[in-house]
Amino acid sequence: MTLPQLFFAYFALSMTVLSLLIVTRKNPVHSVIWMLVLFIHIAALYLFLNAEFLAAIQIIIYAGAILVLFLFVIMLLNLKREETAQKYQSQWPISMGIALVFAIFMTMIVGKITVMPALGEYSVEAIKAEGSMMTIGKVLYTRYLLPFEIASLVLLVAIIGAVVLAKQRVE
């Protein structure tokens, strides 16, 4: 095994373990903390994949914003102990079966990939020459401008929706 492969093996192993920890913890706060560790791993993996921008927003948005939101909600709800007493629903064996079949099927898909499409213009060197941020910015603000604007609308709707849903009804 080469060094990069060793690195990947570490990441793969730790991420799998972290994911299992996340879905099996009794206390949601623990889940969120493990989630944070997982996100940092994912961000490092993005760096391997030459996607610095994604690594940055993974930390900023996921770890910085979404997880904090989760923590806030957990705090707001102030759950009693018995709320978290029994972890699993009665259907958990079926769920596990389905999840296993999912894993098997998707691994089988990998074997199905025989023909690779032609390589695009954004090789490692090309991105390095211009900088990751610059490249993604150029693509985002030219070819994907309309989806980008729509994404901003989606966020706006989410903001308004969240406010409307969570505010006290004043009669």
Binding site: S95, V101, M106, I109
Partner: peptide
């Protein structure tokens, strides 16, 4: 959710 996941599995199975 279970039924939905099962449906997705059926589709993937069909594809494979």
């Amino acid at each position: 959710g279970l039924v939905m996941a099962f449906g997705v599995l059926c589709i993937i199975g069909y594809m494979i």
